[in-house]
Design a protein around this nucleic acid. Structure first.
Length: 561
RNA sequence: GGGGGUAUAGCUCAGUUGGAUAGAGCAACGGCCUUCUAAGCCGUGGGUCGAGGGUUCGAAUCCUUCUACCCCCGCCA
């Protein structure tokens, strides 16, 4: 609709240029906004305000000229000039009502578009170390990352979701030593407990399972506990498999799927890490100091140089990270989005610097990052500190069990990634009925309920009869719903472009609110059949749109509550 | 000290890449169920958009200075 109106304005401007009212070099960017206040019509343009100076006219004067030059169109009922010089467009009823047909024809794909044109995009998220269960922060990453994937797929991108699986390095050794200590009967308070060891209770459970000789069936590995407290390597393999399985189960319960688990160890096995080091050295961006090998990341905007090979010969996490992202580039992903917690912010500059130092023609700002701010968990009115090493923990699984998957996902995705999030468990539990997700789902279920009622009465309706009498939708509540439905494709497009799924959540709250208001004000199943069928068609369009929107958030659309 | 983020109603947060009188939920108060599900609706009250300055037809939004809080600044990830 915006596009059609934009074209009308452009035609009017062309005519004014031809008549000499506007300079020949007028190259306006026509901007159309939805109005906030319905007394301002449906759409508004500020074009007269932006061109007034160049035209040497007062804005309202120019606006009048533009309105007089607008080609006739069945879309527009009338225009008004308002305020300092806005042109307000009042759309005809029939053009507003047409959205119902569009929604019902497009069905599950209403709101989808093809801006991605089949281009490939890779989205990496969660990427938690296999050193403990997933916590709320990972949950936020999972909810946001998965929703971004859904948004990109809905806008025509070919999406590859990926979990970088850190199964090598110092933290894994730390994990193995912690489990071994538990196998040996040590407690975290013991003086012999490993320095920086993981203290959580789950470590004891891993040890118990290992000593019992359990077999772990994780998605990509199957390991049986050797039950030998002295075999550190066996413990390491068992512990990684155990925690991998736990994370698999957590993500499955959360409804999050990954196309690929990329193993950090594979970068060592394939020689990619070595190759990366050699290339960085050959390119002259490194130096040795204090027995370590440093990368001159300050050449690429970092505030200090970084160690890539430690004095003990091992690599820091930074180097495999660079090798991993080179691998992504080599796989042909021109667009990559990394969704991470903001506590990992410092890696952004570092990874990009490493990629520049490789001199492979990778763009400077590649890859994209979406950083979500920290999640604070409140329980019993107090903040629960999340620390794997200290052992205090609120797992994602706990939340799903207590609060429910839909509410947990909605809660974690409904805020902008850049704002901090307080997850109050007591609130989510005690007032779960007030959770916005139920409000939205209820709107969906209500439409289903109306349809059931219709069937109970032995009545039927057809989409065609509904679409044939859309002109009966004349109530203010109905007009508001029509406008809202028309907005959905833009909401999806901008949410996808900006990697901001929360705007979809906000939209659904508005749509559901307007539906509930309409439902209470006007009965759908009235005796007047044409009116009834028109309202059923509108109800069905609302239901379809809510369903599509919830799907983008990974939240279910129940048929009854 | 440096980098990033945030600051909007009592609380939790929106605010469509500069638009018209800044919104919603919760909390408070008052109404609505013999009528398609009351997990709902209607109404009332509630604001120096952290503070100062700047840019322009127009600023919660952009620039600048300051203040407060969160995160990071490791040869951990």
């Amino acid at each position: 609709m915006k596009q059609e109106i934009t074209q009308l304005i452009e035609q009017a401007l062309d005519a004014l240029v031809a008549q000499g009212h506007l300079p020949d070099d007028t190259q306006p960017r026509v901007q159309i906004d939805r109005t906030r206040d319905k007394s301002h019509g449906d759409l508004a343009s500020n074009i007269a305000l932006t061109l007034a100076k160049a035209a040497g006219m007062k804005p309202r004067e120019l606006a009048t000229l533009i309105c007089e030059s607008l080609p006739a169109s069945g879309l527009v009922a009338h225009t008004e000039i308002a305020g300092p010089g806005f042109i307000n467009f009042f759309l005809s009823d029939s053009s507003n009502q047409a959205i119902v047909r569009t929604v019902l024809e497009r069905g599950d794909s209403f709101g989808h578009s093809d801006t991605g044109a089949g281009r490939r995009v890779q989205v990496e998220f969660v990427s938690a170390n296999p050193t403990g269960p997933l916590h709320v922060g990972h949950g936020r990453g999972a909810a946001v990352g998965d929703s971004i994937c859904r948004l990109l797929a809905a806008t025509g991108w070919e999406v590859a979701s990926e979990f970088y699986y850190n199964d090598a390095g110092a933290q894994i050794d730390n994990l193995a030593r912690s489990v071994q200590a538990r196998c040996q009967g040590l407690e975290p308070d013991s003086t012999e407990w490993p320095e920086d060891g993981y203290r959580g209770d789950y470590i004891a459970e891993v040890a118990r399972s290992y000593l019992a000789g359990d077999t772990i069936d994780a998605e990509d590995r199957h390991v049986t506990g050797a039950a030998d407290a002295d075999n550190l390597e066996a413990i390491r393999k068992f512990a990684v498999a155990y925690l991998r399985r736990e994370q698999d189960l957590d993500l499955k319960a959360f409804g999050v799927h990954f196309d690929l688990y990329f193993l950090e160890s594979s970068l060592y096995d394939s020689g990619a890490v070595e190759t990366t080091v050699e290339r960085l050295i050959a390119n002259g961006h490194t130096y040795e100091q204090d027995g370590a090998l440093w990368l001159r990341t300050t050449e690429f905007g970092d505030d200090k140089d970084r160690v890539m090979r430690k004095s003990d010969g091992g690599y820091t996490y930074f180097l495999p990270d660079v090798a991993y992202h080179l691998n992504k580039w080599q796989r042909g992903f021109k667009r990559v989005i990394n969704e991470q917690g903001a506590d990992h912010h410092s890696t952004v500059t570092r990874v990009r610097a490493g990629l520049q130092a490789l001199e492979q023609g990778i763009p400077e700002g590649w890859p994209d990052y979406v950083l979500h701010q920290m999640v604070t968990v409140m329980r019993d009115g107090e903040e629960v500190k999340i620390s794997k090493r200290a052992g205090s923990y609120v797992t994602l699984r706990d939340l799903i069990d207590e609060v429910g998957r839909d509410a947990t996902r909605y809660f974690l995705v409904a805020r902008g990634p850049s704002s901090q999030l307080t997850f109050d468990i007591d609130l989510a539990l005690s007032q779960s009925n007030d959770n916005p997700v139920y409000y939205i789902q209820y709107a969906h279920a209500r439409v289903c309920s109306i349809m059931r009622k219709l069937a109970q009465q032995g009545d039927t309706w057809t989409v065609d009869s509904g679409l044939g009498s859309l002109e009966r939708l004349t109530e203010e509540h109905e007009k508001a719903l029509l406008r809202r439905l028309d907005q959905f494709p833009e909401v999806v497009a901008s949410a996808a472009a900006a990697s901001e799924p929360h705007t979809v959540a906000n939209y659904l709250r508005e749509l559901a609110g307007e539906f509930h208001a309409w439902y209470n004000a006007h009965k759908t199943l009235v005796d007047d059949k044409p009116l009834r069928d028109a309202r059923l068609a509108l109800s069905e369009a609302v239901r379809q749109t809510i369903r599509n929107g919830l799907d983008l958030l990974g939240v279910s659309a129940p048929e009854s509550m």
